[in-house]
């Protein structure tokens, strides 16, 4: 018996159709990413009251620049990159203290130990910790934690979104975990 359902198109297949002029398909991409980008933005910003406007701007920018998408690579990294820049700009406008561009973590090499299996196994525990403590983390740790634990991205994708070396993603993630375990009461770590 053959499968009568058409295969679920990938993001990249949808992008190709938009690039060829099927503008209504862009709505399908928005369906897939509105909730994700809104969630990312809410954790990112100190005052996320205008998150819908920001996400709308992200989609507008995405549509304007969609011809630059290389469909052999992940569309999710590309759109998160746009969202990341938009949220950083919004954060800059909200904060009185300037956001530092200078981060020594991006200057030197850090060994990458991405043990996907082991890390994903502890992901559930970490997700609970992160939900409780994410607002206590610095911006640079918060964004990595969000992308890894809530958006299920790997180091490579996160590096592409933040435009930082892969080793920097690893070091930020491990520091964020250590900070969360240190900051939160002991009983929340026994999950």
């Amino acid at each position: 018996m053959s499968d009568s359902h058409p295969p679920y198109p990938t993001d990249e297949e949808l992008v190709t159709r938009v690039q060829h002029g099927d503008q209504e398909i862009f709505g399908e991409l928005m369906d897939r990413y509105t909730e994700k980008l809104s969630r990312y933005g809410r954790q990112f910003l100190a005052r996320p009251e205008h998150i819908e406007d920001l996400v709308q701007d992200v989609f507008i920018k995405a549509y304007q620049n969609i011809q630059s998408v290389d469909t052999s690579r992940k569309f999710s990294s590309w759109i998160y990159r746009i969202a990341h820049n938009a949220f950083v700009n919004a954060l800059r406008a909200q904060q009185t203290a300037p956001i530092s561009y200078f981060d020594f973590d991006t200057f030197t090499a850090h060994p990458v130990y991405e043990d996907g299996h082991a890390e994903r196994k502890e992901a559930e525990e970490m997700r609970v910790l992160v939900e409780k403590g994410i607002k206590k983390l610095d911006q640079k740790y918060r964004e990595v934690v969000m992308l890894y634990y809530f958006e299920n991205m790997d180091y490579q994708q996160i590096a592409d979104i933040l435009h930082v070396p892969i080793g920097t993603v690893g070091i930020r993630l491990s520091r964020a975990k250590a900070l969360l375990k240190k900051e939160l009461p002991v009983d929340t770590t026994h999950i």
Partner: peptide, 21 residues
Amino acid sequence: SQQNIKKNVLEKIRHGDVVMR
């Protein structure tokens, strides 16, 4: 509000207020 985002963006695209580079 999330539905509105989609509606607004698609409206702008259809009316040519937002165009692809």
